[in-house]
Simulated scan of single mutants.
Amino acid sequence: MELKEFKIAFAGLKQGKHEFSFELDNEFFESFGYDEFNSAAVIANVELDKRSTLMDLHLVGSGSINVNCDVTNEPFDMPVDATMDIVVKFGERFNDDNEDILILPHGEYELNVAQYLYEMVVLFIPLKKTHPGLEDGSLESDVLDKLEELKLSSPDESEEGIDIDPRWDALKKLKTDNN
């Protein structure tokens, strides 16, 4: 999918700053094959600063995405406040190997920012998504109840004294002998 609505025709723009706004929803992320979000409502603003030999792009995404907690699998809205800066230069051929610099071929007249908006939001999401109610204790969940039950039913390490595998002692001795 080409996502034509995310193309910015910069050739006809005067030098200076220009602003563009885009809505990023679930359909947008699914067009990249990304289906980790239950729903998405992100407004992306792109500020293009056109100069004589290059352009600066400042991308800002704000809104929320609905994801499942990695601990409880409970859905929750995660706020999004992501930014990305890209310098656009012109050269012999297209090159996006550097994450901060994009080289477009001479004579190019438009830029599709969809890929960069996608990366900005997806890279903002933490590896572990935790429901805010889990941290403040306000989340009621069957999964949490079961985890607490399992935690309580496991033997308390401090009371019973744990038999440590003697091989660990041998490894600890090696560690202290080298110092």
Rank of each mutant, 00 (worst) to 15 (best):
L24D: 00
Y118A: 00
V46F: 00
D142V: 08
M55G: 02
E160W: 12
G133N: 04
L102V: 10
L3P: 05
S39Y: 03
K128T: 04
M1L: 09
L13N: 02
I65T: 01
Y116F: 13
Y109V: 11
F37W: 00
D97R: 15
D81I: 03
E92A: 14
E140M: 10
D81F: 08
T176G: 09
I65D: 00
E19W: 02
E92C: 05
H131E: 02
L174S: 12
N112P: 04
E23S: 14
R167A: 13
G107I: 00
E119R: 08
G161A: 07
E92M: 10
L104N: 00
R51N: 15
D177M: 11
N95I: 05
D81V: 02
L57I: 05
F10A: 00
S153A: 15
P155A: 09
F94G: 04
T72S: 06
E110G: 05
L54S: 15
H18D: 03
M120Y: 07
G33M: 04
I162W: 15
N73F: 13
E140D: 13
M1R: 09
A41S: 11
W168N: 07
K89Y: 08
D145A: 13
T72Y: 02
D145W: 08
L134Q: 04
C69V: 05
F124K: 07
E36S: 14
Q15N: 14
M78D: 00
D25C: 07
I65V: 13
D70T: 06
K128A: 06
G33E: 04
Y109E: 15
A41K: 04
F76W: 04
F124Y: 12
S64W: 00
T130S: 07
S158W: 10
L13M: 11
V71Y: 03
H106E: 15
K173T: 09
L13W: 02
L104E: 03
L123V: 03
L59A: 01
E27L: 14
A170S: 12
E160L: 14
S39K: 06
T72D: 02
K4G: 07
L104P: 02
P132V: 13
N179V: 07
K14G: 09
E140I: 09
Q115A: 12
L59V: 03
L54Y: 15
H18S: 07
